[in-house]
Design a protein around this nucleic acid. Sequence first.
DNA 1: GGAACCATTGCACACGCTTGCAAGAGCGTA
DNA 2: TACGCTCTTGCAAGCGTGTGCAATGGTTCC
Lengths: 338, 338
Amino acid sequence: MGRQVVNRKIFVSAKEVAHRAGVSRSAVSRTFTPGASVSEETRRRVVEAAEALGYHVNHLARGLMRNESGIVCLIVSELDTPYRASLIRALTRQLQSASKVAMLINTDRSDNSVDQALRQAISYRADASIILSGMPDKSITELCVKSGQRLVLINRDEQRDGALRINLHDREAARRAFIAFLRAGCRSFAFANSDVGTPSLMAREEGFRAAGREHGFEITIERYGPTRYQSGVVLAQRLLTREARPDAIFCANDLLACGLMDTARHQFRLTVPDDLCIIGFDDIEQSSWSSYNLTTFSQPVDRIAEEAVSWLAQPILSDENSCKLEAQLVWRGSVRGG
Amino acid sequence: MGRQVVNRKIFVSAKEVAHRAGVSRSAVSRTFTPGASVSEETRRRVVEAAEALGYHVNHLARGLMRNESGIVCLIVSELDTPYRASLIRALTRQLQSASKVAMLINTDRSDNSVDQALRQAISYRADASIILSGMPDKSITELCVKSGQRLVLINRDEQRDGALRINLHDREAARRAFIAFLRAGCRSFAFANSDVGTPSLMAREEGFRAAGREHGFEITIERYGPTRYQSGVVLAQRLLTREARPDAIFCANDLLACGLMDTARHQFRLTVPDDLCIIGFDDIEQSSWSSYNLTTFSQPVDRIAEEAVSWLAQPILSDENSCKLEAQLVWRGSVRGG
DNA sequence: GGAACCATTGCACACGCTTGCAAGAGCGTA
DNA sequence: TACGCTCTTGCAAGCGTGTGCAATGGTTCC
């Protein structure tokens, strides 16, 4: 009947375990500290007592002492996007293998929320932060680095002292996309981009345009909205109603490509790849679905996660903090003559 | 040239802020504790010093003192699945609005890893854990509850004392799916399920079969693999090669439905909805893409997240810890005569 | 002017843990 | 027996906070 305030948590502490096992608190602590000096007999008794009481080392207190929380913050917006989600999955896996734990911070809200997220990371004394979306203010990243917190930037191309930058060879990939179109016999090229202007997206655009120029072709460029399916729909409507309709479209992103392809087929009655060749980027799961069967570049998410986590794990910072990975071309059916 | 060990973190503490502001450490603490008694003048000086030094309250230490870490664990496997990803997105949003932070634990690995995840949650003295995948052992959930940690089970139908269970009216939804098929003129019904046997999936199967029985129809049931696209492909191959080919298939899941629909169209040359009506479940983003245009039931992810977080936030546990929400039927083009 | 009250502030303890240090135990050797 | 060595163990300090308690100073009221 009583209003019971449950706020009161009552976890069992090392003291209680020590009491039950008939040893000192230090012995308990050492039992759960790899490499510490404890006799086999003591360890046995401590483990038994801990088991019986349901004891778990308090990582908050341990982090306070060791000055190492084991927490790594993942800072991301729109995390339900297929590519983002699979990257998060790979990262959490790798982090857990390295005995770290991921703290997920959603920056969907406002623009400065990446800064807020980093402050959060500092408050929890995270060992590191991995930024998948947006770009924080320079002052705050400097504070992170100065405080000894590691920083990883994935597909953010900006320079930040002391941070690890992981990027893809976007320009080279774009060049290969162009060559693929050319070999397929295409003669009118377009690039479908979002208007968010992320460096990696712009690099793809630039690389594609440059490759076109080298071969004497002018590339039609259209930009609209966020990098989502619905933007692809709009981009298709803009590109496919032009007087000189492109027969090859490189999309900044698979989501754009899906929206564009659906619209090309269902609204404009075009056949892919006969009337129109399409290449995307990311190799999200949907690209392999038979409705799309999209030729695209795969992001090596496992490699990215591996690079990030192994950099975090090493005790010594190397001088070179930039890592460029290759995006592999996945041949499917949206380009003629794969 | 020196091997510089960077392990050493050097965050600024309240003591330093106090020194710079010329006040006691308590004053600093009170400045950052809502509702504490500090004069306007002191607060101003403290805030200024904190700003200058880049001070952030140590949430580890605060959590230790307050016995409330602010951490909520999300325990999930296969988080790159569209439905899971959008649920996680909604949850992180809501948690952040409630000044909590999400710790993401990936349980892809082994079977007992949900138990491991909960131990992790206990170690970090999480205020609560939200379980989206799998089911932990009873002993460990009891330990959580006994320790005063909140527990939320989403779409896990098992009873656990002290935990909040959030579920959908799966059986009722399945019944409505059957009625929709019946009204569309279908006469041969099938249910396409995965073989993982999650209670909510089984409830859909059971509800669909029961509705069929009531109307004098026997339902064909096929189960295969995980709840993913590729399983839908296999299920289509099994169901559509039967002598009595179904003209209505209710899929346990949108991913299954997408795989099944693609296969029905591209491999069996069937037209949806003329030859075959399909209904899915979850309303993932892809279902609204024009290639699928799938009639399905929407999971109210925002409502789910809201329910979960508001239950965590309230200081007093109510007696009734079960919450059933309705899945809304989203009419699209995969059933005749919507 | 004195009493009563209030807001503010500093002191010191507590939270649960790790770890340096010194002491104790056990043992082999001279 | 005395000595030196190794392994184990307890003590106590300290990590960065929050907060009860008492002291201080200022204001109001009689």
